[in-house]
Structures are given as C-alpha cells and as structure tokens.
Amino acid sequence: MQTPARFDYERATSLQGAIASLKEHEDSRIIAGGHSLLPMMKLRLASPTRLIDINDLTDLQYIREEGDEIAIGALTRHVELLKSELLAEHFPLFKDAELVIADPVVRNRGTIGGSLCQADAAEDLSAVCAAVKATVVITGADGTRTVPMDQFHLGPWTTAVGEGEILTEVRIAKRPGGGSAHEKVERRAGDWAIAAASAAVWIDGGVITDAGIALSAVGLTTIDLTRAEELLRGQPPSEELFEQAGAIASEDCMPIPDSRGPVDYKRHLAGVLTKRALRKATARALS
C-alpha cells in the first residue's frame, strides 16, 4: 500500500492556534476530511512538513440562518450539506451536487472548506457556491476578510486564501424568487465530473432578475459564465433563452482534453448541462 512521507502532526485546539502554527511552520497544511490531501500524500505528490488537524474545531461545523444569509462553517461535512433541510429549501443545488460528489462514505468526512480550498477545477462545490454568489470568509491572525466566490479561485489549485490564513465560512444571501440546480455527467458514480454546471436564477414578476451560472471540469479552474448571466437578466425564462445560455457556455468554457473526453464533447456537455440546470432551477424558482 502507498504510504505518505514523514511529517509532524498537531491537533489544533483553537482557530487562532491553528493560524499561528500555519504561520510558524513552513510547508505546513491544514487537514480536515483529508480525502483529497491524504491520497496525494500517499502518492508522494504532496509532502507537507506538518499537518494541522482542525477536526476538533467544531465551532466551524454548522449550517444556519443569520439574518438574510445562510452561513456554512468550513468544517461542515458533505453529508451535512446533503441532509440539510435549510439548504434544500433555499439552495437545492447543494443536494443535487452532494448526491454525486464522491461516495457516501467519503461524504461523511470531506468538508466544504476542504473542497473549496483544494480548488480542483473538476470539484463540484466551487461551481455550486459560485452560482449562488456566495462569499467566503477567510480568517488570519489579524482577523477576517470576505471574498466573493468569483474572486476566490486565482488559478488551478490556487485560491485567495493566503499564507497563515484559513477559510472559515461560506455565506450565501437568501433572496426571494430563487431557484437553483446542479447537473453533472460522470463516467461512473463517484468519479470527478466530465463536466458539471451549477445554475441559480432569481425570478420576480415573470422575469429573471438575476442569475448565476458556473461550470466545473471545463477549464483550468471553475468557470463563471458572466456573459450568460448578463443575457438572462431582465428576460422572461424560456427554452430558447436557456439554449442561448447553453451556447454561451459551450463557447466560453476552456476545456482540456483528457481521459474523460475531448474538447468538443466537453464544450457540448457544458452547453447541455447549463441548459438543463437553468431549466430545473427555473422550475424550482416558480414552484
């Protein structure tokens, strides 16, 4: 069996303690669920000198309403996102996504913070959070700062979380008339997406007042479909409109050919899944 190289381990007892340790130890990494990091370490593709285990920081594990926002702690597990009635009511795309992220056993451990920070372009929750226009809260030694999702990913496997900082929370504004959906095509259950699309729409008086669309696995990082969002705003929802949004998705994505498929297929899927996600999101918004 593959085994990781040597490292030091500490179990954080406070958020500030974990942040201090991150700062103090070069090449140290936070570990929560560990289901992305440990396989990389076993393959010896990642060799941090120290792991700071934040699993005891259960203050970071919650899904709750705070005024007109929903706040999700970074240590919240996939299984909790899947089963949250609050999320299912306001942002059902979380459930759509969680049903197809990895498998149920992995979902018991993996966290939303870990998923976002891993910043794999094929990861689903980044698109989900981008589509619903979430903001993430990043905490450092000097306090917290807030970054909107569309500024969170700086590139492949790179995020706005800086040295000595920890992603601590995801916040999503509740707005009336909203509906959302996540669509994914995978080679097999539990596999990373060939392509996936997250969509959210807010409808008032039969008109789409705002929309969010983001794609997984069809670029170096999560793709925000701002051009399609602009197209939708101010329009009444229709199949024709969704087709147009899908066409933009096919154009604006930047897929890389790999064993999951060639570029033309991924572009095609981006379009189909964008259309489907919009269709479902709209139906949910209107129901």
Partner: peptide
C-alpha cells in the same frame, strides 16, 4: 462505451 466515445460515434 464511455459518454465521450458514444457521443463521438453519434457525431
């Protein structure tokens, strides 16, 4: 018959 391969055949 992966999705990509079947789609290519369909095209």
């Amino acid at each position: 018959c992966t999705p990509a391969r079947v789609w290519a055949a369909m095209q």
